[in-house]
């Protein structure tokens, strides 16, 4: 029976060797990077101005003023998440009815429709609206907040509400869509609410995840995508009811059309998540994801069926009540 092995002039007993090899394997396994958060490629500060797509709605483009400057905002990246900004809306008279705003002293370069799917989270909504209006006005972009509320008892269908929101934003000619969760708020001013050439994942550094990105394919939370691209991929799937899966499906749709995604540098991506009870998970999201590729052309904007119950123009947002 073989009992010892000779390696480099030293004899090892088989059991000793086995134990050492096992230890080494365990050690190597414990530091394998695939089980941990991942680093990601990001646009450097010099590339950001070129990557941003300067497109505005007609009413803004007719203004005869000097263009606004955004370099300093990104450069400074001021920390904003303080009680001063998050508690109440400062100077509410600046905001136009329907939650629209554009800077008065210069011509905005970017127009963005902020689409927020919503159901039964009043406290979060209140905090979100007051903070976001304070925040976005300092960014000097032209924006309007569309709140799409699901007005039925079916499981929450986030993706479908985004589709509906994009249709309504298109009515207002917005060239850029920001698909935004109501429980996420940017910490620093540098996370510019404008579209880049490629769809952009904006909340890559979430405080719930220690400001790290769990995996590179994560494309949910806050996403900036051009209206035109959103139409090219036929929007999002309408079939994801309940929590989870729809953001991965969006990522797969983009990949199938060879559209890459991009991100800003980590310190520009920092978001905080408001605490809430977790939504009911979608049990068959994995099955839906697997068969997703077959439905890219049939399931989405072109198969969207809904009834608009009501559209209210509030002082801080445009409220759209829909039945899915």
């Amino acid at each position: 029976m073989l009992k010892s092995v000779k390696i480099f002039q030293r004899k090892y007993h088989l059991a000793e060797l086995l134990a050492k090899v096992t230890c080494c394997i365990l050690l190597i396994y414990s530091i394998l990077p695939h089980r941990f958060a991942s680093h990601y490629d990001y646009l450097s500060a010099e590339d950001i101005p070129d990557a941003l797509v300067s497109q505005v709605t007609t009413n803004i483009s007719q203004q005869h003023m000097e263009e606004c400057h955004y370099e300093d905002i990104i450069q400074e990246n001021r920390f904003m998440y303080t009680p001063q900004y998050s508690d109440e809306v400062l100077k509410p008279e600046e905001i136009l009815p329907g939650g629209e705003y554009f800077p008065e002293d210069c011509r905005a370069k970017y127009s963005s429709a902020i689409i927020v799917p919503y159901r039964q989270r009043e406290q979060q909504l209140h905090k979100f609206l007051s903070y976001m209006h304070n925040y976005l006005r300092l960014q000097k972009v032209h924006y309007r907040i569309f709140l799409v509320e699901q007005y039925d008892q079916k499981p929450f269908n986030r993706a479908k509400l985004f589709n509906i929101g994009s249709m309504i934003a298109a009515e207002f000619e917005f060239p850029c869509l920001i698909l935004h969760d109501v429980d996420l708020m940017p910490l620093n001013l540098g996370s510019l609410y404008a579209c880049t050439e490629l769809p952009r994942h904006m909340c890559a550094a979430l405080d719930m995840w220690r400001f790290h990105l769990p995996y590179r394919g994560l494309f949910g939370g806050v996403v900036a995508i051009r209206t035109q691209q959103f139409r090219t991929i036929n929007g999002m799937s309408n079939m994801y009811e309940g929590w989870g899966g729809e953001d991965d499906d969006l990522f797969e749709r983009l990949k199938s059309r060879n559209i890459d995604i991009c991100r800003f540098a980590p310190h520009l991506n920092e978001y905080t998540m408001l605490r809430h009870k977790p939504e009911k998970k979608n049990e068959n999201r994995v099955t839906l994801l697997r068969s997703g590729a077959l439905r890219y052309n049939t399931d989405g904007l072109n198969s969207l069926v809904y009834t608009e119950k009501d559209r209210r123009i509030h002082s801080l947002f445009t409220h759209i009540l829909v039945q899915t």
Binding site: L27, R35, F36, H39, P214
Partner: peptide
């Protein structure tokens, strides 16, 4: 573990 960076884990190990 998905919230930890591989570098942080390496230092710990």
């Amino acid at each position: 573990l998905l919230e930890l960076l591989p570098e942080e884990n390496c230092i710990l190990v």
